[in-house]
Amino acid sequence: MTDIQYTPRELIVCAAARLLSDGESVFVGTGLPLVGALLAKKLHAPNMMAIYECGAVDPEPRELPWSVACSWTCYKAPIILSMSSVFGHSRAGYADVGFLGGAQIDMYGNINATCIGPYDQPTVRLTGSGGANDIASLSDRVIFMGLHLPERFPEKCDYITSPGFLDGPGGRERAGLLGQGPWRVISHLGVMGFDDETCRMKLISYHPGVTPEIVQQFTGFELLIPDDVIETPKPSEEELRLLREEVDPNQLFCF
């Protein structure tokens, strides 16, 4: 077999798509998650029900849309509600998975999408929450996707926009939050989960060409590395073909 070539973003998207199951409902945030959700639907999860914050539920999106609200995303949706309604439906229990990106994620799975540096005088002002906080607060469990760098995986986020386990075990319950919280983190170096007892981020698999040591080097906190970590399977030819030909044919995002 010839060696399959792929970009870091393609690997992230393929690894993330595998985590979505057929028949689940997934609240999809913008950016990489949108690409992952479109790929999963074309691969193994044709009956996955996507929810978008503009109000569209279960559409059949065309190739990579520009926005989670645009007409390519909402295409053929059987119902288009309002923003407050779809978040209400999540809180009611209709969102199994929240699928998110962000600028930073810390050891307890808290996510920052607001600012780098102090809030009042930020070095970088980011977009703000958008639907991210609601997706993380109201879905049953949460998948995060992003690039893996020490400053993007700090011990503590500069600002907590979306809740993970907050300050650790019991944090969500004390704050009054619903849902199980963070479940998986996909980066271009590996797939992470969270330790049941300590709620700290742990490595589940490292991507081809990477070692657990490299993943640790690019993480700004001590990553738990269990003995049973494995190598992430490479993207398959079928995954890459669908991604390149049907999901993102113009290589707008998975460059």
């Binding site: 809740p163 969500r172 939050l177």
Partner: peptide, 13 residues
């Protein structure tokens, strides 16, 4: 009364 934003810095800012 909502279940969003709880526990985060959004509550403070």
């Amino acid at each position: 009364a909502s279940k969003s934003m709880l526990g985060t810095d959004l509550m403070k800012s």
